[in-house]
Design a protein around this nucleic acid. Structure first.
Length: 331
DNA sequence: ACCCAGGCATTGG
DNA sequence: CCAATGCATGGG
């Protein structure tokens, strides 16, 4: 069986990166068993299961990529598909990001350097397409991630193509065309709000007709991408910023409107305890600069792992025994 | 039953 | 420019 190797830059923690965007057991599309990452993808109009696992050494990490059905040696079409699959894996695991720069950036920041140590090697995990990225972010707006993943699973099972392999059913994320021509009621029936249903359908149509072009946007700067994506119904700054990270792989983005991120800054950074969104953004850009996206995901990773939390007081204050407690989250 | 969770569009000052 | 409001589900 043909297997391709992709080399990555150390530090690189394959499992942490694979897990970051996949927090529920009920995942039907983005599969990770702790060892092998698998996802069914449309590649050059073929359905293929991409299978990835870590190999190499700590100093020279690498990924091994396989396709099922397997590529046929010497077949030109198979070769194209394999190359495309490698491109997807490179994107999903941000193998080109060099985290030494992030380490240097946060060395003097007590909170982030602790998080960097705790989660060392976590790369920015990304989605294979801009369409999928935006649909997931729209579904995630305001509601808990668990609910959002439930809704995503229903969308995938209703509109995604499937492939049976060894008695197991694999789903691909729906292509834009599958959602562009559906009625909003079909999404409403899955528990999606009226506004989000309309947003997803409009996004699907914009993707099909080319008015949203991921390849073109890839060459634009952050603010241009944010402006362009924000023209879509249901896409605001928060959603566009996460798309800059989770699809385009920009390392210098800070989603200052994010509820969880705001809570952490309010609790752990006195300087911005009650700041407005644009002040938080300025603070983050100054402090984390080209690595603000990594500061963001390490903060969220820390929250999930319990390295940091939003529940109680940050530390025991030696002098203010009777002082009023700090609010733990922004309003 | 109620409140909240990795927002957004709309409306009104 | 800023504040208030409704929206969807599922877990506490």
């Amino acid at each position: 069986m043909t297997e391709l190797m992709i080399h990555a830059r150390a530090p690189f923690d394959f499992a942490a990166t694979a897990k970051f965007l996949r927090f529920t057991e009920a995942e039907t599309i983005d599969l990770f068993d702790g060892n092998v990452y698998r996802r069914l993808c449309h590649i050059n109009n073929h359905l293929r299961l991409i299978s990835v696992k870590a190999c190499g050494t700590r100093a020279r990490p690498a990924l091994a990529v396989r396709l099922i059905p397997a590529a046929t040696d010497g077949d030109a079409e198979s070769s194209l598909i394999l190359d495309a699959a490698v491109g997807i894996v490179q994107r999903v695991f941000s193998v080109d990001h060099h985290l030494k720069g992030f380490q240097a950036q946060v060395a003097a920041d007590p909170v982030l350097s602790k998080l960097e140590t705790a989660h060392r090697g976590l790369h920015l995990p990304r989605w294979p397409s801009l369409f999928e990225t935006l649909v997931i972010s729209i579904l995630s707006q305001q509601i808990s991630t668990v609910v959002a993943m439930t809704l995503k699973r229903r969308v995938v099972e209703s509109f995604g193509e499937r492939l049976e392999l060894d008695g197991q059913t694999f789903f691909a994320f729906p292509r834009p065309g599958a959602l562009a021509n559906t009625d909003a009621e079909n999404l409403r029936a899955l528990g999606i709000s009226r506004a989000k249903a309309a947003s997803i359908i409009e996004l699907a149509r914009a993707t099909v007709n080319g008015s949203i072009n991921a390849d073109k946007l890839a060459g634009e700067d952050n603010e241009t991408v944010i402006r362009t994506l924000s023209d879509l119904r249901g896409v605001g700054r928060w959603t566009a910023e996460w798309a800059l990270m989770l699809y385009f792989g920009r390392t210098d983005v800070f989603p200052a409107g994010d509820l969880a991120v705001r809570g952490v800054l309010a609790k752990y950074y006195d300087a911005v305890a009650n700041s407005r969104e644009r002040d938080l953004r300025e603070f983050a850009q100054k402090r984390w600069g080209q690595w603000a996206s990594y500061a963001t995901i390490y903060i969220l990773a820390g929250l999930r792992a319990g390295t940091i939390n939003l529940r109680s007081e940050r530390v025991v204050s030696s002098t203010a025994a009777g002082s009023s407690p700090r609010r733990s989250a922004g309003k």
